[in-house]
Design a protein around this nucleic acid. Structure first.
Lengths: 344, 344
DNA sequence: TAACACTCGGAAAGCGCTCTCCAACCCGAA
DNA sequence: TTCGGGTTGGAGAGCGCTTTCCGAGTGTTA
């Protein structure tokens, strides 16, 4: 039972024999305090076991020392297994790790928020405007999401991870998805592949369409004007299915670029089942360099996505914007690299 | 620039032509309010676009509607890559997913806290006592951690995931690690393995020592009094190394239980390199049923750890304890099951 | 009509903190 | 001694909300 009242500034002041204001000044390291008093106050703090109440402080300073990590989902039928799938994926953890690496050092906390409905989004923005957090890092899952615009219109400092689907004046960090896809194309070509296909993600999410565009463009530049593409939804199973149909329609395929590692895992399974040897009969390049890539067999040649670095940069950007809300809107694009393993 | 002042209760009261108190009553759904006024107030709320300020509310109610997810690490040399490894592991995400599945429904938020030093722990407990959060879910990484005791002594509602290393009167959820290990032993035995080894985790973490004990006991009961054991640290590489030395010392090995899937992945690599076929020459059973288990090839036979369910239960337990701090200390132990795939 | 029990809404006291004023004081210059 | 400038510390007004306490209004019973 949390009964005994915790010591407050008032108590410390009484013990130290000074006023509340003075204690506050000392605690917050404001000069203009006699060094002697300074010591007396700290001593009283120690004796009382005083810990400042962040809530009360935030209420007046309008600063919470917290940023929100917002996961904006589209259709959250509550028992949607999607969310749990999302969390189980290393993607989420890598983002958190990257964010924490810079936030922690600044003593900034991270609060997790998940919104699935427009109503939820409205409430979220309201809470943020009320100073529930100093700003937000946004992971936007739906292809088209009103949240980024709502945030800018609400003057909430926010940074997106991944570019917004529609143009919104908001800070973001992203990966040069097209360059990554081009890297995959080059690699396949260099290996001597002649019939190259692709398994893409949903057409309406930016990261996905950028990969398709980059891949197509790179191949076209090298004389491959037409590329068979099958669409998946970034899950393992969809990758397996896509690989099967792709193979059925293009039996002579000898190389395939899969838009993420998870789908590539499924593709590998489909190929194994079809009796195709990887990489000898057919080369596979994934995307993300997730932990699945190393676990796969053969280990996946893939495009490395420096997600931790991107998240860390997003955190830095957010902190800067919180510090200076008038800062000009900026974006940082990371260049991916190809990691060669066994599959291609 | 967040310039214009947001509407407050006061503003709503003015628009509705009632007092602050009445608006507060309506918003919080307290009866004793004339239905007519009720409507007038809600109308005013809509017109002003009022959103209650959680901070101010929490300050007076002493309830934040937030629980902290505390990751207690031991030695956090700041650039320690360990933390990022920890976050990249699906473990973390699965816990978050499980927690959110129940917290979200209750409108409770999750705040992430990482502590690495005793000083940090002290500050954390102080903040929690001050009502920074209503309670804490604790992920304790170090083998022996003062945090659980500090929390109970500070009367902070808290639930551990994984039993405390030393006895502390605190709620926790855990897995019957010994039973899981016994399951693995039975399976290996049933398959006809004769020379069985184990790759364990660090000896001082409870989950790890329980697995060793359970495995040993189960084998002993079936006549295998001695089991060669090699220790790893739950990372892939340590598993690979452990497998190599285990194999070198016991060339006739035909079965091995690896204390987690990640190390099993490494073991698989070591076996492939040594030219042993899995499961034909040597059967491998992992632990966790992480995503790595399906990605591996051959897919890992492993012990399923219902981590999401455990985390969800932890959340429920915490919510209950917050509601009733006098509730008797309880723990919930989950029974693992064996998932048979290809490796054994 | 008087007395009583209820119901409902408002005034105001905080929750624990920060920070603006302002009074008190000390110093050296005139 | 008087005055101006520069420090230092205290009083007190909030931050936005909840909640206790009361008075006013309503209806019921004798």
């Amino acid at each position: 039972m949390r009964t005994e009242r915790l010591p407050t500034l008032e108590d410390v002041a009484r013990v130290a024999g000074v006023s509340r204001a003075t204690v506050s000044r000392v605690i917050n390291g404001i000069r203009n305090v006699d060094p002697q008093l300074h010591e007396v106050v700290w001593d009283a703090v120690g004796r009382t076991g005083y810990v400042p109440n962040r809530l009360a402080r935030s209420l007046v300073t309008r600063r919470t020392g917290t940023v929100a990590l917002v996961v904006s989902d589209s259709e959250s039928h509550d028992d949607d297994p999607f969310m749990s799938r999302f969390f189980a994926d290393p993607y989420f953890g890598r983002v958190v790790g990257g964010l924490m690496s810079v936030l922690r050092r600044q003593g900034v906390q991270l609060a997790l928020q998940i919104v699935g409905t427009d109503d939820g989004r409205k409430r979220l923005v309201g809470d943020l405007r009320n100073g529930q957090a100093d700003g937000a890092i946004v992971l936007s899952l739906p292809a088209v999401d009103p949240l980024p615009r709502m945030l800018t219109e609400g003057d909430v400092p926010a940074v997106l991870i991944g570019r917004p689907a529609e143009p919104v004046p908001i800070d973001y960090v992203d990966l040069a998805n097209d360059t990554g896809a081009a890297l995959a194309a080059e690699h396949l070509l260099t290996r001597g592949c002649q019939r190259i296909g692709m398994i893409s993600g949903p057409a309406d999410v930016p990261a996905s369409s950028d990969r398709v565009a980059g891949f197509r463009r790179a191949l076209a530049r090298r004389g491959h004007g037409w590329v068979p593409i099958e669409t998946g939804n970034f899950t393992r199973d969809s990758g397996e299915a896509a690989m099967r149909t792709l193979l059925a329609a293009n039996p002579e395929l000898d190389g395939v670029f899969v838009a993420n590692d998870l789908m590539a895992l499924g593709a590998l399974a489909a190929l194994r089942e079809a009796g195709r040897r990887v990489p000898d009969d057919l080369a596979v390049v994934g995307f993300d360099d997730s932990s699945a890539a190393v676990a796969a067999s053969p280990a996946l040649t893939t495009i490395r996505h420096p997600l931790e670095d991107m998240a860390a940069e997003a955190a830095r950007l957010l902190l800067a914007r919180i510090e200076d809300p008038a800062m000009r809107v900026s974006s940082v694009i990371y260049e991916p690299v190809l990691v060669e393993r066994e599959s291609a």
